[in-house]
Structure formats: structure tokens, C-alpha cells
Design a protein around this nucleic acid. Sequence first.
DNA 1: GTCGTTGACAGACACGTTTCTGCAAGGTCA
DNA 2: TGACCTTGCAGAAACGTGTCTGTCAACGAC
Lengths: 362, 362
Amino acid sequence: MSRAETSRRGSRPGRAGIRDVAAAAGVSITTVSDALNGKGRLPDATRRHVREVADRLGYRPSAAARTLRTGKSGLIGLTVTTYGDEPFTFTEFAYFAEMARAATSAALARGYALVILPATSRHDVWSNVALDGTVVIDPSDQDPVVSELVRQGLPVVSDGRPAGSLPVTAWVDNDHEAAVLGILDHLADAGARRIGLLTGTTTDTYTHLSTTAYLRWCERVGQDPVYEAYPAHDPCAGAVAADRLLARPDRPDAVYGLFDPNGTDLLAAARRYGLRVPDDLLLVCCSESTVYANTEPPITTLSLKPRRIGTAVVQLLIDAIEGVESDRPVEQVIPTELIVRTSSQRRPPRTTVSPPRSPEDR
Amino acid sequence: MSRAETSRRGSRPGRAGIRDVAAAAGVSITTVSDALNGKGRLPDATRRHVREVADRLGYRPSAAARTLRTGKSGLIGLTVTTYGDEPFTFTEFAYFAEMARAATSAALARGYALVILPATSRHDVWSNVALDGTVVIDPSDQDPVVSELVRQGLPVVSDGRPAGSLPVTAWVDNDHEAAVLGILDHLADAGARRIGLLTGTTTDTYTHLSTTAYLRWCERVGQDPVYEAYPAHDPCAGAVAADRLLARPDRPDAVYGLFDPNGTDLLAAARRYGLRVPDDLLLVCCSESTVYANTEPPITTLSLKPRRIGTAVVQLLIDAIEGVESDRPVEQVIPTELIVRTSSQRRPPRTTVSPPRSPEDR
DNA sequence: GTCGTTGACAGACACGTTTCTGCAAGGTCA
DNA sequence: TGACCTTGCAGAAACGTGTCTGTCAACGAC
């Protein structure tokens, strides 16, 4: 009687509130909440009745109100690095796309959604969204965003071992040094005498670790380093750097490229200089792209396993958010995979250059 | 005196509320809110003082509370299509990555953040996040998610002209029919006599429109259609389909591939059959990838301009959210760009197959 | 001297949930 | 038969903002 069926003045026609459901079902707000969330102690009949009424009214609980009350939003931030003017860039395209895809998928499977955020400290955007935690990709040393998030008590998991004393909750990374050493050994085994490196000028951990590992390997085997660096976010610069590397007087007979497009860049440069791959030049690059299976010749690639990384990062983050005591280590090293193709293998018996055969020959 | 300096029992050490700021500044909650949001009528001295105190306390307004109060969350959904088991997939990789990048960038520039959501109607995820509006990529006919969102009164902008009578707020798309016709004419001009198509088995609008345009073009010029279809989300199937297309007795002398990896797939298949590109086979594919500038030979590609599309979609959506009366049309057609490279041009004077020359020859 | 007007702020409510506390009815046991 | 527990549900207090309404002092005009 005293209950207001009109659910106050501001009742939007398209949005039914929990009060409307309670009124329509003839029960209290508490009962509706308990029935829909599977809490409290209610007989199944009441539970079913409330659910049926809620469905009929098309009731959707307000995410904002739930977040305000429970303190959990079900949202995870995904922070990506920024280069120069571009407010936001997916460098290492296929890597990031795959990683983001796996992360999104893993998050959704546990009921969370991902919010894409820039690494810049634009407070107005960061503070406008209620996050339960954040995934940070390759944070820089003393990253202010990470510090701020940690200060607020939010868990932060990073893709990439944090440099310095960045206080992240957990991290996942490849063993980049081991990967580079493995590739260099692989190339040396294939007969390379002077191995060159195509690297980046940026200061991220991946570039730094890989370059350092290369330099140390050179020192160990007594080879002079032969490398060219370029800003990795500029695709044209990569082609130029590949060209420079092969134009040097101390031209390498094998090259490892740290970034995704380096394979085609190096292949094109090799063609310009009349170098045959793999006869005159062995080639490996780090890439997640499948195009290298079908280039001429197919190019050996190093996969960083972004899907495993994306999945692992999100699992760790959600474990931390929910306070789950999982048996997952908080510092995970994901093994890389070297996909060996023609470009890094000298053909042991030198066959004639065979013209492609049509399937009828088989 | 009666004011509680301890800000109630549940005061988290890392989180200062608006009450704490008010108490520390010696003013009321109203004054703090007005000072920080630039409303009300306050002397500049008070405004500055409040801001200074808020900064000192590291005050960040609660996004959830603000959303609950104002009804605006500053979040935009980005819905991507789902294929089979994969809960979530970025097909047409580079296209989606570029589109998402541009959309994120445009949204951030206007103070919004993007949430990645699956097209499946998993209500638990959708209703857990407060959205101001949604971008839908290539919605299917009678998409239940779109209907539900519209029913809730949320604006929905689609990338791709909506099929049927889907009630979206606005849409942006390329003129796929014109693009296909342009490519077919381009290939015919280059001397193609029988043009084949590599297409998909999925029912999305892009595939449908492109295939239909191809069939109509064939009918008009009196050519028998020569095409192979495969599930676009399976990369291996693409290679097989490319092989099938070139193995047919009525082998085409030119092929257009609708999907990103088709270029390398077709190139590899052509090599297997001993077909030279472009001499024996003209090639064009739809792709945003830059690898086709450096393949041997470079492959002509059609760009759908995903960055312009991503930007336009977000601008339209935010205009609708904010009720801005912009002069932007609610149905936008973005022109495509054909990047003509070697693979679709017969060399007018038939030169000898020149071995790659080293730069010293120049 | 009183009355409207304006500036500067405070009190209180509402947003829509979740959840703690509590109450009545009915069953069980000493 | 009362003490006590369980069941089924209702009331009301938060969560942290934004904002409407109202108060108090100062001030000029009649």
C-alpha cells in the first residue's frame, strides 16, 4: 500500500531497477538481490519466481551501483607503451595483437573485461575508470603510472621483467638472453662466420637485453659486433637499416632481426645486393606472423609465445585481485620457440636450383 | 567538533575520500566538489586552496560513485566478432589492430576509454560494465547484442553497414562493391582474361558484398566465375584454398584475395605451379600489412583505411553519447585505396628476367 | 531602518546496489 | 511449556559522489 509502484519520479522506461522487481514480485529488495546472486537462504520456489519476474522486466543490475557497493568493477586495465606523437601504438604488431587477444580471452573466461589505456599519466582518463588491477606491458624504469597504481593498492602484473625496483605484484617474461644466445648458436652451427644484428634505438627491456646478450656472445666467441639500430616504431627506418647493415664493408653472412618486419626488410635488401638466402646470407627474425612460412625462401622465426604470456599475465592478476592462493609462481619465464625454416639452414648437399614442380609430378 | 576527522571506520590508508578533503581544507563537501569540477560560484582563493589540499592528499574521485551519480561512465564498448570455439578472434589481423588502435586513440582524445567485449551474449560480462555506448564491428543480421543495447537506450555505432533493419545509431563502412569492381577493372586493364576470387565461407557483410559484386561483374563481362571459398578464420585453410584455385582446369590468370594472408598464400601456390607473377598470374589482395611492399614481387593491395574508420566510428558514437549536434553524417562511406605494385602490372616491354643487381651497378 | 539581492558556503538527498542485523513463525528438545 | 535453533524474509545502513535547496552575512536602495 505504502509502496510506490511508480518507482519514484525518475523511472526511465527502458531501465528497471531492483525496486521495480521487488514490487512486481511482491517481495523485498533483499530477497531479490539474494535470489539473483544465489546468496541467503531462500526456498527454490521464491528464487525461481524472482528470477522469472526479473527476466520478464528485463532487469539488468546497475554495474556502477554494484561496483560502488562491492568495490570490485570486474575491469582490468591493459596498458600499452607510447612512442613519440602517436598517443598509442601497437608496436610489434602481431605480438601485441596476439597477446591482447589471449589476455582478453582469459579475462573473459573469468568474468573480467579489459580496458585499453595509454601509458601516459593522463589522470583524467585513468581516474575515470574503476579498475580492479592492471596489466602493464614492458614498463619503463620507475614508471610513474605503476607507482601510482601500487600506491592506490591495486595489483599490477607486468609483461616483461620490471627494470630497477619497480614494485609489481608479479611478472611474466621470456628469457630473452637465452633466446638470443640460442639463435646465435643456431646460426653458427649452420656455418655463419659473422653474425649481424638488426636492433632498436628504444630503451625498452626487450631491446636492451637482446642487444646486451648479442654483444656478450660476440665477446665470448671473439667476433666483432656488426649491428644497426633504428627506431622500431618507424617501419620505413627498418628497411633503411636493413639496407645499411648489408652495405657495410664488414657485411655479415647471417643476420638476426629483433622486430617483426625485419624478415621481409632483410630479404628485400638481400635481393638488392644479389645475396642468396640462405646460401650467401642466413636469416632469422623475431616474429609472430605466419607470412614467413610462405616467403621465398621461408624465414626462420623466433616466437615469444604471446598467447601464453597474455594468458599467464591475466591469470596472475586475477589471482591477486581475488586473493586466490594459487600455486602459480609470481615470476614466470615462458620459453620461446625457434621455428626453423629454410632461411637459416645451409643445404648440406648443394642441389641444383630446382624449378617449382607442379603437383602432377608427384 | 561534531565532524569526524577519522572519516569513519573503513578509511583505507591509500584512498582519501571527498570528506577527507573537505575536513582537511576546512570546507564542506559541496565546496570541494564545486571547486574541483569548476562549478558553483567560489572565489579563486577557495578554489585554489581546495585543489591544493586535494593534491596533497592524493585525492582521486571514485569512478564508480561518479558514474552512479552522473549516469556517465566514460567507457565505450568495442565488440568484435567471434568464430567457432575461439571465444574471441581478431580476424583480418592488421585491419583490426589498426582499427582498434585508431579507435582507442580517438576515444582517449575525447576522454573516453575502450572496453573490449565479445559479441557473444554472455550477459554476465556485458552487464558487469557500465557503458555509455558501443562500437560494433560487422554486426550480423538481427544481432541480439545490438538489439539489447538499443533497448537499453544506449547508442550503437557499427563498423560495417548493418544488414537488415538493425537499428544502429550510425554506421561507417567502405563501398566494398565499388572497391571490388575497381580491382576487377584494374586487373582486366592489365590484361587479365579470367579473374579468380579467393573468398570466405562466413556470412559477414564484407564477404557477402564482395562476393556478390564479383559475381555480378562476371555476369556483366561474360566470364564464368572462378572462385574458392574457405573459413577465413583458419590460416591453413587459406593456403589450401589458394592451391585449389590454381590447380583448377580453368585456372585463372589473375586472382583477387579477400583476406590479409591471401597474398603470400597465392604467391606460394603460384611458385608451386611454376607460375610467374605478374607474367603468368596477376595478384591483388586486401590487406593492411606492409609486408607486401617487400615481397618478391611486391603485391598490389587494397587498403580499407581502418584508421579512418576507427576514428570516424568513435567520433560518431561520442557525438551521440554527448548529444552533440555535429555536422558529421550518420552514415559515412570511407573510400578505399588501391596500392598498385608489381604483382598487378604486366611489364609493357617484356624485359629479360634480370638478376638482382647490386647497388654498385648504378 | 527595512527589504530585496547577491555572494559564499553548508545540509541533505539521491543514484542503485549489497549486506548486516533483526524479527516472526514454526519446529525440536529438555 | 518455555528455551532454543532454523527458516524465510524485511529494514536499513552503507558505498562516494553530484547537486538542489537553504542559510547567513553584507550591502545598496527606498
